[in-house]
Each structure stands twice: as C-alpha cells, then as structure tokens.
Design a protein around this nucleic acid. Structure first.
Lengths: 146, 146
DNA sequence: CTTTTTGCAAAGCGTTTGCATTGAA
DNA sequence: TTCAATGCAAACGCTTTGCAAAAAG
C-alpha cells in the first residue's frame, strides 16, 4: 500500500511555482509519501533527518509550509493553540479562509442532519458533527482582484 | 440579538461538576455571552479584565479550558500550532477524539458529494469540504470502562 | 552570476507549571 | 475548617525571524 513517489510531478510543481528543486525539498517530499497519517513538523524533521542528517528543523518546517501553500500537501484542522473558543453551542458549520485564517460560522439545516453511517457509529462514540469548508472569503478575494 | 445570560444554568452546571462558583468564573461566563464569534484566551482576558481588573490571564485561560471540558463552551477546530500536515490529497473526512486528541481519517462517498448551497458559493470561494466528527475513539472508550 | 534556499541562533508568542495565598462551601 | 481556585513568575514547546553562507538555475 506504499504510495507511489512521483518526482516528476514534484519537480514540475516546483518549476510552476518558481521554487528550486533542492536535495532537502526532495528528501522531504520522499518522506511525505511514507508518512503516517498527520505528521507534525517535528515528526517530519526526525524522519527526514535519518536520510539527511544535516538538515535543520527550520528547513523542514519552512518546506512543509511551502508545500502546503502550493497544494502539494494539506494542513489539517485541529483543536490546537492558539485555541479558539466557541460559546455558541447550537448546531452550525465553519468556513475557514485559507488567506486570512478567519473562521466564519454558517447555518445549514441539510448539513445539520447528516446521516452518520452505522459502520462509523460502531467504531466511534460520536458526539457532534460539522461540515468544514475551506477556501477564500469575500474580503480576501476582493483584495486579490483589487 | 444579545444572548440571554442564565446564571442559574451556570451555577447548576458548576455544582454538577463540583466546581466552585467564584466571581472570576461568573465574570468569564458573563463575558462569553457577549463574545464575538471565536475568541482566543487572550481576547477573553482583555475583555474580562475591563470588568475585573485584577484577574490574571491564567485564570481566564484555565477557566475556558474547564468550561470546554464540562461542555459549557466548545473548542473550535483550526489550522493552528503545533501544525499537522496531511500528504493525502484524496477526499476524506476526520474524526477528532476529544480524549486523546487523535485525528482519524475515514472515507465516505456520501460525505464526499455534499451539495454546497449556492448562497454559500456566492459568499465564499470554496475549494474543499470535509465532515468533521467529534467524540471518543475506540481505544479511549475501552480505557474508560476498563 | 543572480537569486533562492539553507542553517543557525536568538527572539517571540501563547500555554503550562509549581507554589504560596486566598476564599467558597 | 477544608480543599479548590487564584495569581504570579518562571519554564516550556513550537514557530518565526534575521542574517551570512551555500547552492540552484
């Protein structure tokens, strides 16, 4: 089940975004293909380091941010710091702006009533569900054009 | 549109969880009712401080964590630190365990095909959607019983 | 040769900890 | 009177910054 590593796609994407193909970036890209579900920058650093002992944490962290910026990987939403608290306990959904980071609430009754498959209910004790959309908010897309 | 403040519910919930009703907690609870969408601990600190000048950041932060633990408020998922990266670009969904913090991937084709209302598409430039479930994972619920 | 990228070290930001003091029940 | 909650200050974890040296194109 090992993901196939396509270095051609990698260097093409780099060129498309005017990024240089360095040994460090290549090593990080290779390691991502082997990565377990949702690695942190530090986990990636520890892994890449084995193949590339002189690489710095910094380069790994910056490269991961670069890769997520150009869409080679994604950032995963989580309940981490700086924490945001939500006093609104009623059912609602979230739009995350990839540009400004804002999280905007919206309501949608279809999304409130999602049927959670029984296979999932057997595996998890589910207490809530939410639809999370990502993209660019109105304010940011105006800035891009203007 | 000001949310109604029910201090009765508040003190009942505190008693139910063996938490003492202190002036600090009451002030924070009051302020939460006025809060704009997703305040951070520091934003809450700045707000509560105006009514309660001697309160410490610490108390505000700890109290917010306590409130979210007993379900008086929620934590909001976001793309914050420590960051987690996802090399899997194919459509999938997430289960967040509230106990251990793990994020578990699952696939579900119904969730892949959610119809995003055109009212939302007019407001946002949506690039991806995901269902995020919260609850307790199998491993953690075994620990609770055993 | 030019411009990006790298590695390092220091700074930064928000959170957490340990502990003595205070105060709710 | 007891035990939880508070406030403070220091420690901590992870990220970011500034910059000189190295390397890609």
């Amino acid at each position: 089940m090992q993901k196939e590593i396509d270095l051609g796609v990698f260097s093409k994407e780099c060129r498309r975004h005017n990024l240089r193909v360095t040994p460090q970036r290549t090593a990080i890209f290779r390691e991502l293909a082997k990565a377990k579900s949702h690695p942190s920058a530090d986990e990636m650093f520890q892994a890449v380091r084995k193949e590339f002992p002189n690489i710095s944490y910094d380069t790994v962290n910056r490269t991961l941010l670069t890769f997520s910026r150009i869409g080679l990987i994604n950032l995963v939403e989580g309940h981490t710091t700086p924490r945001r608290f939500d006093p609104d306990l009623s059912s609602h959904h979230h739009f995350h702006c990839q540009q400004c980071g804002r999280i905007i609430d919206f309501c949608n009754s279809d999304f409130d009533d999602l049927k959670i498959p029984s296979s999932l209910l057997r595996e998890f004790d589910v207490t809530s569900s939410r639809v999370v959309l990502r993209g660019i908010c109105k304010a940011c897309s105006r800035k891009r054009i203007g």
